[in-house]
């Protein structure tokens, strides 16, 4: 019984939104229908891309020791760690929300905050297939300038986030990652 009520609570926001969408369906049918259609399309995308990602994360969790990840992307990995994080993010595809669970696993394995944020930054702005697409819509000049700005931005943001996070908060964050 307790389990049931907590599940209800966890899904409450979703249920409220679902109800809101149902109301829209009757009050503004055009918007309501299009909202359901979009949600269904996004859900299909999400359900197709997330299972293999989570499976790989589960495998990584069990098979790759924390020490190994720390060696390559942890505090002592230096520039190489950042470069690896950048490459991982750029090679990825899929919406940004899929990057967050991966980041959680990286934290769990002791990767530094700045490297995790480099990974997120790369995932959001320097994905290679997206760049080709961007260039064909907006031109190479725009894409090149945007890309250079983004790389500089990613580095600055990662550096600042690392520097402005207190030791206490960092500990809490890594502890939270252990429980995920």
């Amino acid at each position: 019984m307790k389990q049931k009520s907590s599940a209800l609570r966890r899904y409450s926001l979703f249920l409220i939104l679902f109800a809101a969408n149902l109301i829209l369906l009757f009050t503004a049918p055009e918007i309501g229908q299009s909202a359901f259609r979009l949600t269904a399309a996004n859900l299909t995308e999400m359900l197709s891309i997330l299972p293999p990602i989570f499976l790989l994360l589960g495998l990584m969790d069990v098979w790759i020791p924390r020490e190994t990840m720390m060696k390559y992307m942890g505090r002592d990995a230096g520039l190489r760690g950042g470069l690896l994080a950048f490459t991982m993010g750029s090679a990825a595809a899929g919406p940004l929300y899929a990057a967050f669970p991966v980041s959680g696993m990286l934290l769990k394995k002791g990767v530094t905050l700045s490297n995790v944020f480099i990974f997120i930054g790369a995932w959001s702005t320097t994905k290679i297939p997206m760049l080709l697409f961007e260039a064909s819509s907006l031109g190479w000049k725009f894409t090149a300038i945007r890309l250079l700005c983004s790389i500089a931005g990613i580095l600055m943001i990662s550096f600042l986030l690392e520097k402005t996070t207190s030791e206490n908060e960092r500990k809490r964050l890594y502890k939270r990652a252990q429980d995920l």
Binding site: Y11, L13, L38, T39, M46, L50
Partner: peptide, 20 residues
């Protein structure tokens, strides 16, 4: 880990659907 984050994902998708 998937079930853990599923409610947030579902909510985000609903919000995106309505908003777009």
């Amino acid at each position: 880990s998937f079930e853990n984050i599923l409610p947030q994902f579902l909510s985000v998708l609903m919000i995106i659907g309505i908003m777009l």
